[in-house]
Design a protein around this nucleic acid. Structure first.
Lengths: 204, 204
DNA sequence: GTTACCGGGTAAATAAAGCAACTCGGTAAC
DNA sequence: GTTACCGAGTTGCTTTATTTACCCGGTAAC
């Protein structure tokens, strides 16, 4: 009963196919750039047909962004599953803080070469940042629903997502400038504390 | 245009599945013995379902003997495709001789550890030798047809197959006793010359 | 001597993958 | 400005594989 369920051949092979496609895609994108790799190249490298590739990933962009997609709706889930007597902002703050503690790539606080290259790839490609923004809007909508259906919830959600985006981007920039994640971590935590405190106390 | 045709994803994956099954089977058989491995074990090791396994190999025995099956009808083909003015026995003799020159496993003249272990596995397992005999009978029938439809052809075919079997078995025995293929080769060639000469000149 | 299990082998339904040919927007050639 | 090509994504159709449940013969339990 491990974390990775070995539930049946079919399921296992589907996972493996998905991984093979994603790995081939990322590797080719990093090597040649997003726009200089065709989906046919990826399909060939992953040894699947083109229709199969599109059965797993709806668009070329999703071949890159599925890693972010794994976090889809996470903020909303954090709010929904917070303990009693825990304000939403506190839960979101703790969750982001936990991400920083674990150097999770989504926080921007990660200096593994692959992760850096991956982020550079995303930020350097217009269609990718575009679609990533779309993801964030979806996330924001889900968070708004979790925070309560009203203009207040929608405003708060927008601010939270904006804060997360700026924090992550700031961390990434420092690391892209050559600093280590370990070195940047204290500032990242301070920035997060500052930003979330601002959100909680409305000190704008 | 290599020997291994890369003709399409489907064909390539079929080959790979077949190889995975056969490799898993041989490896398990050598490790635990033919009768102490279930086809379900093999399917699990090869990561395919049991029906899939049986679509590739009609019986458990064929998981081992498909290597011999590759030579199915070879004698008949040799006779059919011999040049003009070449007597059938001469063609068969040359062909067997060529096999010895190349240390082909079918000739028994091969001292690779895997090949030795493989042969031991076959000869030590009743159901395998049984089915192998069946293969040889099929081979004999095909050869008989190639030699001409009559009692004479059938007799000759039987004798050829018998000779090949004895020669191969003799070679294998010497190698099983610890000698090298290179060392045995001259005797093997002499034996083959003797046996085929006997067949040609009818000196029984 | 039934009953229960095990291993080889099969059948029918369904899921997933491959193949080939297509649409559609863009863009380079001429 | 038409023609031709390229790359993203789609559509039917066929092939291959998994699932599940079964048959059958043997054999161990009781």
């Amino acid at each position: 009963m491990t974390v990775i369920e070995s539930a049946g051949l079919r399921a296992r092979k589907k996972l493996r196919t998905r991984d093979a496609i994603a790995d081939a895609a990322i590797s080719l994108f990093l090597a040649r750039g997003f726009d200089h790799v065709s989906v046919s190249d990826i399909a060939a490298a992953a040894e699947v047909s083109k229709p199969t590739l599109f059965r797993y990933f709806p668009t070329k962009e999703d071949l890159v962004l599925h890693r972010f997609a794994d976090h889809k709706g996470e903020a909303a889930r954090v709010v929904d599953s917070r303990g009693p007597d825990v304000p939403p902002m506190t839960a979101l703050h703790r969750h982001f803080r936990a991400g920083l503690d674990r150097f999770e790539p989504v926080t921007g606080l990660n200096d593994h070469p692959e992760v850096i290259a991956f982020h550079r790839l995303v930020f350097a490609t217009a269609s990718l940042t575009g679609r990533l923004t779309q993801y964030q809007l979806d996330d924001e909508a889900a968070l708004a629903a979790a925070l309560g259906s009203g203009i207040a919830g929608r405003l708060q959600a927008a601010q939270v997502v904006a804060v997360q985006r700026v924090l992550a981007r700031t961390n990434w920039q420092k690391i892209a400038d050559g600093r280590t994640a370990h070195d940047v971590q204290p500032e990242a935590i301070a920035d997060a504390d500052h930003a979330f405190a601002q959100l909680s106390h409305g000190s704008i």
